[in-house]
Nucleic acid binder design. Structure first.
Lengths: 238, 238
DNA sequence: ATAAGACCTTACGTCGCGTGAGGATCAAGG
DNA sequence: CCTTGATCCTCACGCGACGTAAGGTCTTAT
């Protein structure tokens, strides 16, 4: 059997068969005097094995090792490949979460310049530093449950709330006053809605605000003064 | 700022920065008379963008296009990347299912030669031809619920059952006889356990047996004669 | 006999750099 | 001022698994 025939049978190209010979994976049984490659039944079988192993994502090198020493632990090779694949999948899924979040934020933002885009990515990497992968999954799940619309609405509520708090702060209102306690309750309600009541997520959120500062952590929505003032109000309420 | 400094700041190597200049992605603002690269604030910013976009899995070419025409639809680029990623993930997960199945079969088989291994893979590709991806997921899920032990047990039951049916066939027992009806009931019970009662899976299974023939479809456990005899018994029972 | 098709070897391109080789330049100490 | 070590430069090959010519030889059908 000549190369072209074998190539068609195996669904490969002639070049591929040439290459397999080049790397010592599959040599023809013999050659004609003109140098044309001739393959026998054994080669057909071996090629079939190669194709199947390739479909499982093994490298040509690994396949060669596998086929050349039949006593080599196939089970080990499969386990190894499986482990590698699982790592890859985990990476891909992390990337998927990032891209989804970014896409959602892009849909939400009115300004889609490169700057906001880059800003979004920076925020995401910051967030990924403070939440564990499981927490991120949970947050994603909660985001879906709540819906994009409610998220936008909540962002509006935050804006209003912060503005009101700042007004009280500038008026010099006592943090322990009833007005401030009502605002503090709304504040904690919004946080509660975000965390879904999960104490771990609440903790991570707090750590992020402490480490990065309120301005960065809130993406510019709130500044240190207002935050400090609100913390006082919440402490007074305890 | 010189290359080494910039490289350290960005967490890249000097070679990478050289390469980025080579492909027209990031050129230094100027050079010293000795030819040393000098980068300014604008280049630092651009490099930051490049790094971030790389983390999202964009190719250098795509990044260049993105950065060189700021009005280019970032949202579209993200959507495109997301779609590509989802395809990749789907492929990886298919591969993952295959490898898991193979690993399980390898654990179950006493003979772990290349031949059984290859045989397993062939069977898997055949199976994937007849079941939809959702059905495969369902089957995987059922396999986990049932447990490997019960699966091995069931395989033993199949062997016994087939032997008994063959014995009756060779004795010339009437397919409509009560003996055969009891065997048919056991037969259908085992199938039922496998399909989990899903009619779609049952249909796919039937199609596979019709198209591939009983010997191939059952991995050599049953032959056409026994199958035909059993079909008669089941028809007689209706 | 001739034309079309199959075959041969050689070799460069892909992508994102890593890893040298061999030499020029720079900053700091003796 | 000279040396030394760090940093810089360009050039170029390497990777993995082939694709894609280019330019020539062989086989097969008419």
């Amino acid at each position: 059997m000549k190369v072209g025939t074998l190539a068609k049978k195996a669904g490969l190209t002639v070049r591929t068969l040439h290459y397999y010979e080049e790397v010592g994976l599959l040599a023809p049984a013999q050659r004609t005097e003109a140098g044309h490659r001739l393959y026998g039944a054994a080669e057909v079988a071996r090629l079939q094995h190669v194709v199947l192993l390739r479909q499982l994502g093994f490298s040509l090198e690994e396949i060669r090792a596998c086929l050349d020493q039949p006593e080599a632990s196939l089970a080990r090779a499969v386990a190894l490949r499986l482990a590698r694949l699982e790592e890859e999948i985990a990476l891909q899924q992390q990337l998927h979460r990032r891209l989804e979040t970014i896409a959602a934020r892009l849909r939400a933002a009115e300004d889609v310049s490169i700057e906001t885009f880059i800003q979004t990515i920076k925020v995401m990497t910051m967030i990924e530093k403070y939440y564990t992968p499981e927490q991120l999954k949970q947050l994603e799940e909660r985001g879906r449950q709540i819906g994009e619309e409610r998220i936008r609405e909540a962002e509006g509520e935050w804006k209003d709330l912060i503005a009101e708090v700042r007004a009280e702060m500038e008026k010099g209102t006592d943090p322990a006053s009833e007005t401030m306690q009502r605002l503090a309750a709304r504040w904690q309600g919004l946080i509660q809605e975000f965390t879904g009541g999960d104490p771990g997520i609440y903790q991570s959120l707090k750590t992020m605000y402490q480490q990065e500062g309120p301005a960065k952590a809130s993406r510019g929505m709130v500044d240190p003064e207002v935050t400090a003032y609100m913390v006082k109000a919440m402490q007074a309420g305890e």
